[in-house]
Simulated assay, not measured.
Amino acid sequence: MQKHRQGRRFATKKPIHTANREVLLFNKPFDVLCQFTDDSGRRTLKDYIDVPNVYAAGRLDRDSEGLLLLTNDGSLQHTLTDPTQKTSKTYWAQVEGIPHPKALENFASGLKLKDGLTRPAKVEVIPEPEIVWERTPPIRERKAIPTTWLAITLTEGRNRQVRRMTAHIGHPTLRLIRYRIGSWTIDGLNCGDWRRISLG
């Protein structure tokens, strides 16, 4: 597995279609920005990836973790980020409390958020995934209140959507990890590591 910490030059333009396609899977740690520069000195992609001319295909919030795909291929980036393509993504959400099954059933018909009704989503209660790593800093847990892990699959990508959906049913998200984008997952990829993938 390839892991890089320092680089010399990074993309300043959006990716374009190229015969030499670079496609990377990155397991983004908590508190890392999905960009290569930051005037405030916060951690960014350049602290982990030294491949030039690649850009994130989609976003992952600074306080979220998990799979981020980077590429220099504009057509692939468009496919993954275009809402009409309905690219499926799965998230692992650790939420406060134990959601009632009836509340989770509402995900299938859509939840009415401030920006409108969400598309139907899949949700299931799961055990804590074995590959989950320790977060730094750890989440704040209240001893008297249990937590639950949910696997939530969406085909849209509104701003902070998973967090807003779990809050809507009364169970705030304490930790959020993106596990899958399309057919790609973070299986075998440690937190903070990246690898090139083959598109066949």
Score class of each variant (00 low, 15 high):
residue 100 H to K: 10
residue 136 T to H: 15
residue 124 E to P: 00
residue 129 P to A: 04
residue 18 T to A: 08
residue 140 R to N: 11
residue 28 K to Q: 05
residue 14 K to V: 00
residue 189 L to F: 02
residue 64 S to K: 07
residue 5 R to A: 10
residue 4 H to I: 14
residue 118 T to R: 08
residue 196 R to L: 00
residue 130 E to C: 07
residue 82 D to A: 12
residue 26 F to L: 11
residue 22 E to V: 15
residue 17 H to M: 09
residue 70 L to E: 04
residue 144 A to I: 13
residue 172 P to C: 07
residue 117 L to M: 15
residue 191 C to G: 00
residue 77 Q to N: 11
residue 143 K to W: 06
residue 66 G to N: 00
residue 16 I to L: 13
residue 144 A to M: 11
residue 50 D to I: 05
residue 110 G to M: 11
residue 22 E to H: 09
residue 185 T to G: 06
residue 34 C to M: 06
residue 105 E to C: 00
residue 44 T to E: 10
residue 177 I to M: 04
residue 161 Q to G: 03
residue 117 L to F: 07
residue 116 G to I: 03
residue 123 V to S: 00
residue 62 R to M: 11
residue 43 R to C: 06
residue 27 N to E: 07
residue 45 L to Q: 05
residue 25 L to S: 09
residue 110 G to V: 10
residue 199 L to T: 12
residue 115 D to G: 01
residue 15 P to R: 02
residue 32 V to Y: 08
residue 139 I to C: 12
residue 137 P to I: 06
residue 88 S to E: 15
residue 37 T to Y: 12
residue 23 V to N: 04
residue 54 V to M: 08
residue 50 D to N: 13
residue 173 T to L: 05
residue 60 L to I: 06
residue 156 E to R: 11
residue 189 L to I: 10
residue 134 E to Y: 05
residue 178 R to L: 01
residue 68 L to C: 03
residue 89 K to H: 07
residue 183 S to F: 02
residue 116 G to L: 09
residue 15 P to E: 06
residue 94 Q to C: 15
residue 105 E to H: 04
residue 77 Q to T: 10
residue 92 W to F: 12
residue 148 T to C: 01
residue 3 K to T: 14
residue 29 P to T: 13
residue 55 Y to F: 07
residue 42 R to S: 03
residue 102 K to M: 07
residue 33 L to G: 07
residue 17 H to W: 10
residue 9 R to D: 12
residue 167 A to P: 01
residue 68 L to N: 05
residue 29 P to V: 10
residue 134 E to R: 08
residue 164 R to W: 07
residue 2 Q to S: 11
residue 151 A to H: 09
residue 155 T to P: 02
residue 57 A to N: 04
residue 190 N to T: 07
residue 31 D to G: 04
residue 76 L to Q: 08
residue 167 A to D: 15
residue 41 G to H: 09
residue 151 A to S: 14
residue 62 R to Q: 12
residue 60 L to S: 02
residue 56 A to V: 14
residue 15 P to Q: 01
residue 129 P to Y: 01
residue 152 I to C: 07
residue 18 T to G: 03
residue 159 N to E: 06
residue 98 I to R: 12
residue 140 R to Q: 14
residue 149 W to D: 03
residue 195 R to E: 11
residue 173 T to M: 08
residue 113 L to M: 11
residue 193 D to N: 09
residue 19 A to T: 12
residue 145 I to E: 10
residue 18 T to V: 10
residue 129 P to C: 07
residue 149 W to L: 06
residue 85 Q to I: 00
residue 128 E to S: 07
residue 183 S to K: 14
residue 49 I to M: 06
residue 180 R to F: 05
residue 146 P to F: 05
residue 129 P to Q: 06
residue 54 V to C: 09
residue 2 Q to M: 06
residue 115 D to E: 14
residue 168 H to F: 09
residue 79 T to E: 12
residue 69 L to D: 01
residue 119 R to W: 09
residue 91 Y to P: 09
residue 106 N to E: 12
residue 23 V to K: 02
residue 107 F to W: 01
residue 168 H to M: 01
residue 85 Q to C: 02
residue 54 V to I: 13
residue 143 K to I: 08
residue 141 E to Q: 15
residue 44 T to D: 04
residue 46 K to F: 04
residue 3 K to W: 10
residue 185 T to K: 02
residue 133 W to D: 15
residue 125 V to P: 01
residue 117 L to T: 11
residue 21 R to C: 05
residue 9 R to G: 11
residue 107 F to C: 00
residue 28 K to A: 08
